[in-house]
Design a protein around this nucleic acid. Structure first.
Length: 232
DNA sequence: GCGACAG
DNA sequence: ATCTTGTCGC
């Protein structure tokens, strides 16, 4: 699929924040998914111990039966610093490269990150979704912003996450006895449909299958170090 | 000024 | 995120 080249990535921290403020406006339409979801992609990354190279992986699954269809990995060096709230400037490039090389188009992509549950309502999931013109979901392992009540302990238990007087996501128990994950729509999705899709992809593990598979693939690629794709 | 703070 | 072995529990 084609990726839009909207802005450069070698920007300063100030420019990055400015870009988020400007791009966020395009990622705030909360629409429930239209039609049938047939393919869901999961994306995640692995870092080397020095923290200057990352491996990105995208794994495509059929939905809702979750059969593995296709997978892509990419690697590149990172220069942008680790700053909560600015992940996309480190992680989006290699993920977008993977998406660009994907043969069949996903209906939605879920990432180990936040969507609009972000200081400027434009987390990594939103950024990737916007540039790829693909509905996206952020499913993070911990909270970045917002607050919520106690999450029911059974699988499927949830509590809305509020930030600045608006609902930005869901704290969702994907399995009994584990900490909830934080689901927030990234691009062109509603909190409800994003939450439903994550729960539908929870197969006995805290992390939904597409992201789990991408996490595993990224780590395997890192250990092998055999796929050193062109750097940019 | 002091915490909080995705991966 | 990554560095690390075994170990307690379903």
């Amino acid at each position: 699929m084609r990726i839009r080249q909207v802005h450069p990535w070698d920007v300063s921290v100030e420019e990055a924040v400015d870009l988020q403020l400007r791009l966020a406006a395009r990622a705030q339409k909360a629409a429930p998914f239209r039609g049938r979801v047939r393919r869901v992609a999961g994306a995640d990354l692995a870092y080397d111990k020095r923290g200057d190279r990352i491996w990105a992986a995208v794994v495509l699954f059929s939905y809702p039966d979750l059969q593995r269809i296709e997978e892509v990995v990419d690697t590149c060096r990172v220069h942008f610093p680790y700053i909560p709230g600015l992940f996309s400037f480190r992680e989006a490039p290699p993920i977008l490269d993977c998406l660009e090389r994907l043969r069949s188009r996903p209906d939605v992509i879920m990432l180990d990150a936040h969507g609009i549950a972000h200081p400027r309502r434009f987390g990594l999931a939103s950024h990737v979704g916007l540039l790829a013109s693909l509905p996206s979901i952020g499913c993070a392992k911990s909270r970045l912003v917002g607050a919520h009540e106690t999450v029911p302990s059974a699988k499927g238990g949830q509590a809305p996450v509020y930030y600045n007087h608006s609902k930005v996501g869901t704290a969702l128990r994907t399995r009994a006895g584990v900490r909830p994950v934080y689901v927030s729509p990234g691009y062109r999705l509603s909190v409800g449909s994003a939450t439903a899709m994550v729960l539908a992809c929870a197969h006995g593990h805290r992390i939904p299958e597409p992201i789990r598979a991408a996490h595993d693939l990224a780590n395997r690629a890192r250990r092998l170090r055999s796929i050193q794709i062109a750097e940019m």
